[in-house]
Each structure stands twice: as structure tokens, then as C-alpha cells.
Amino acid sequence: MANVLTVLEERDGVLRGASLEAVSAGARLAGELGVSGHGLLLCGPEAGGDVVRATQAGASSVRVGEHPDLADPSPELLARIVAEEIRKGGYQAVLFPATVRGKDLAPRVAALLDVSLASDVTEVGVDGTSIFAVRPIYAGKVFARVSFQATPAVLSLRPNIFTVSEGGSGEVETFTPAIPQEEVAAGEVLEFVQAGEGSMDVAEATTVVSGGRGMRGPEEWGILEELRDALGPQAALGASRAVVDAGWRSHGEQVGQTGKTVAPRLYVAVGISGAIQHLAGMRTSGVIVAVNRDADAPIFQVADYGIVGDLFDVVPRLTQEIRDLKAGD
């Protein structure tokens, strides 16, 4: 029986959290199908050193393809090599993390293989012998359960939804992938403008602290940055559209229907009213905390925990209490 493959991603030689989640989900799916789960990492020379963590998360083997051309490849080139690996391996399911890069790669790979893709899924399973997935649609207002009519089933998995398994072991094999000889039409990155320090992508962060119009102005963001830092390195800042439209924060931070969809374990909404388009982007979060001075703000209808009060009073205290708590750990 054909196996399950998870396509992994590293950054600066470290496997991304969303990749560990995906490879764990892949191993569990393989278990349900009675086959084995594998991993594939394509990267620059010596960037694959961390991949043993994918075997700990359940992959029975991981192939690491290292090549100088793959240090910062175009998605067009990467897709070709991944598709070729999938063809050779004959998998019945291929999983990608639905990260910025994964969302760029998976559709191209699916198109090259001439099979369909279920994007940003929040559940994967087996019904009888066929694989199904659940994807939030209409900005989370409906869940669609879909099945695949051809193999391999290709899926991308929403970050922070699937739990990471531990305690597994498996083999790691390094190889040198063949780079396609024919010219692949692709764009060229001329410059990269960093969004500021500690700028983890809001869609991948396990904790998100979002600010809304209640913040009063961009100069007040220091209190949110401090809260983010107190919450740890996996935390990122988000924003409502009102503050992005006002030019207080960049669009890359916007959460919601016309921004990013996030599902962190903890989402803290500060001075955000909770408009339906904002909820669309964060309602699948694990735990939602809201701070708002208006007890009737709609955000409290989705919040697990709310504090009614002035954010300029509540947030600094929250940062302090979390720091104190963590100092005692």
C-alpha cells in the first residue's frame, strides 16, 4: 500500500513548527491507513541537520535533499523537484504545512501532478479506506468535508491545529536532488525588507496579541509589544483592519476576512470590537481573550475569557503578571 508523505520546511536550519505538526498528522493518518508516514525536506547544503525532530514526531523515514540551488529556491523550481519525488515515491497522500511558503508550493505541485488540493484543512481522517479532510469555508462560517477522487490526495494543514507527536524514531537519508535542466520561468527576489525584530508571521505564531482602534494610535503599540515578548518567542502581533486602514500597522499583520486567518493556541484581542470580518480570521483559535471597555462588544461573544476595562490599565498589568508567573517557573 502506498505511503503518506509530508513535505517539510526549515528556516535557518530549524524545522518549522507547522512542519512538525504536519508530519505528526501525516504519521497518524498513515497509522489509520495501515501504512507508514515519511518526510521530505529540500534545502541548501547542511540545512537539514534538524530533521531528526520529524522522525521524533512520527516519520518512519525522512529524505533530505540538499543542493546549493535549493538554499532559497523559487517556488516554481521547488515544485518541480517535489512533484518528481512524489511521482517516484507513489504516495497516496501528500501533506504540506499551510504556511506562506506551503501555500505557494502545494498548488503548484498539485497542478504538476494533475490532482486536486484541499487547502488549509483543520481535520484529516480516514473513512473506510478513503481519506477525507475538513476545511473552513466562507471565512469559517461553514465547515466543508471533502474527499479525494484521485491519488495522491494533496492537502495543506492549517498551522497550530494539529498536535505534535513525540517519542518516535526513524531513519534520515541525505541525497542530492537532480535540478531540472530546462529553464523554469520564475521571478527573482531583489530585496527583502524585514518587518522589524521578532516578526514571526501572525498566521504561524502559537500566540497572537492583536490591537484594534481602541489602541488610539500607533505610538501606543509598545504595551502590546511588551505583552507579546512576555508571552514568549512564538508570539506575534496582529491587528484589526481599522488600524491597518488608518496606517498604524502594516497589512501583513491584519487578521480577518481580508487579512490573515489565524488559529493560535491563544489569541488576545485588545481594543477590538469583534466585527464579523475580524472574527472570520480568528474564530478557530484555541483560547480567545478579549480586553474591551464596552461590555457589549461582540468580541465577548466568542471570547473564552474577557476583561471589561480600559486597556491602558489592563494590558500593562497583564504583562507584569505573566512576567512574574514565568519568572517563577
Binding site: 490532482v115 486536486s116 488540493l117 484541499a118 477525507f132 473552513p136 469555508i137 469559517g140 462560517k141 461553514v142 465547515f143 466543508a144 468535508r145 471533502v146 474527499s147 479525494f148 477522487q149 484521485a150 474564530r283 478557530t284 480567545i288 461590555a295 465577548f300 461573544q301 466568542v302 471570547a303 473564552d304 475569557y305 474577557g306 476583561i307 471589561v308 476595562g309 480600559d310 490599565d313 489592563v314 500593562p316 498589568r317 497583564l318 503578571e321
Partner: peptide, 26 residues
Amino acid sequence: GLKVEAFTSPPDRAAGRIVGEGSDAV
């Protein structure tokens, strides 16, 4: 190649609670 089996309404988030008012609730 992708067949829609079923649409469902997402489970409602369990009703949350207001922990309190102001920084005393922190």
C-alpha cells in the same frame, strides 16, 4: 477531483465568561 461530502455549521464556541472589570481582574 475534490468532492464535497457535507457542509456543516461550525460548532458554536462554548459561552465564555467575563473574568472581571479593570486591572483587578488580571
